[in-house]
């Protein structure tokens, strides 16, 4: 595969080149110290050196709120909402976020393939960029390196002079065609290391989680957790939702919409009649972590966490999924030694 050099001074030109082909979504600054994906208007506003965006690109395929249908209360009839595919380039996506999209693909395709997600998602092209792990990233521990280009159409690897650009698919080649760059023949510097780690692979984690259902860490974490649901809502592999009808003030019509929901929210498991079947905060905490490392993983063989670090960074109580998992591993290992 040919490696090109995309110099820093030409990044804006490259963004403009992509814009000439398709709509481009890329990270922008948001607020004082955050980043968010947004449609590119001004190519100079695109930020490729960023730690992580508030939400992953999931928000384009599974929008925070999505109208499923509109209804007319006078005729009792409904109109389905149009699903518009994201025929666009997603520029500056980190490896863990694309991996998260692949996991969502699995969730929305299995058993009952869901048109809403899959239609939106199918035309999307991805231009990835490497990242420098900060204090919260741990994707290396779940098999996703900071320069992992798998699944991308085009990938940009950060070096001192700019980016090494590689096209990985015919679609990627098409995106790059016509944009002239010198070939890059230099070496690839050693990637920067991760600052935190889960120290064991998924098959060991499956075993650890088999024995961690009653670990004290769930109760201890529940003391700190205020149940705000932020960890679910920022997670790129969470996809649970709630459906609600809204009626217009004229009371002649309204709409049915689905909205992101989260298993950490107490009302998530409330059923008709008022029973909340996962009432304890500790049980909800456990459910969240088991969903990332056990329940789906046992069926797919992969962790369902991509190590982006969003849940930890966004938690006002400072709860870290890495600490929880490492604690379970340590407790399990100690128990095994003690009983041996």
């Amino acid at each position: 595969m040919v490696q090109y050099l995309l110099e820093d001074s030409r990044v804006v030109d490259f963004v403009s080149h992509l814009q000439a082909c398709k709509t481009v979504y890329a990270p922008h600054r948001k607020g004082t110290s955050s980043f968010a994906f947004a449609p590119v208007d001004d190519p100079t506003a695109v930020v490729l050196d960023y730690n992580r965006t508030l939400h992953s690109v999931k928000k384009y395929f599974l929008p925070p709120t999505e109208t499923l249908l509109s209804f007319d209360l006078r005729t009792n009839e409904f109109t389905e909402s149009e699903i518009v595919p994201c025929d666009a380039v997603f520029l500056g996506v980190h490896s863990y976020d694309l991996r998260a999209v692949h996991k969502l693909d699995h969730n929305f395709r299995q058993e009952n393939p869901e048109k809403n997600y899959l239609r939106r998602r199918e035309e999307a092209a991805f231009v990835g960029v490497s990242f420098e792990p900060d204090a919260f990233h741990f994707s290396g521990s779940v098999g996703i390196g900071s320069r992992d280009s798998s699944g991308f159409d085009v990938f940009l690897t950060r070096i001192a002079a700019g980016y090494i650009l590689t096209a990985h698919t015919p679609v990627g080649q098409e995106l790059v065609d016509g944009f002239v760059m010198p070939e890059y023949t230099g070496d690839l510097p050693v990637p920067p290391g991760f600052k935190q780690h889960i120290y064991v692979p998924q098959d060991k984690l499956s075993e650890v989680f088999e024995h961690s259902y009653r670990n004290d860490v769930w109760l201890e974490t529940a003391e700190k957790c205020v149940g705000c649901g932020t960890c679910n809502l920022v997670c790129p592999t969470c996809y649970c939702f709630n459906v609600e009808d809204t009626v217009e003030i004229t009371i002649d019509g309204g709409s049915r919409a689905r909205t992101w929901d989260g298993c950490m929210l107490r009302s998530f498991t409330e059923v008709a009649g008022g029973e909340v079947f996962r009432e304890e905060s500790a049980a909800r905490q456990r459910h969240r972590v088991y969903r990332k490392f056990k329940y789906i993983s046992d069926r797919t063989g992969e962790p369902w966490c991509v190590g982006c670090g969003r849940c930890n960074q966004a938690c006002t109580a400072g709860i870290s999924i890495v600490s929880i998992v490492n604690r379970l591993v340590n407790d399990y290992d100690r128990e095994v030694v003690e009983t041996a």
Partner: peptide, 21 residues
């Protein structure tokens, strides 16, 4: 896990539209 970034939705269905009965 698939590596392809495109995912054909041809076999997908409208899961949330009711039938009026």
């Amino acid at each position: 896990m698939t590596n392809a970034s495109r995912t054909p939705s041809a076999e997908s269905r409208d899961l949330y539209l009711p039938v009026m009965a």
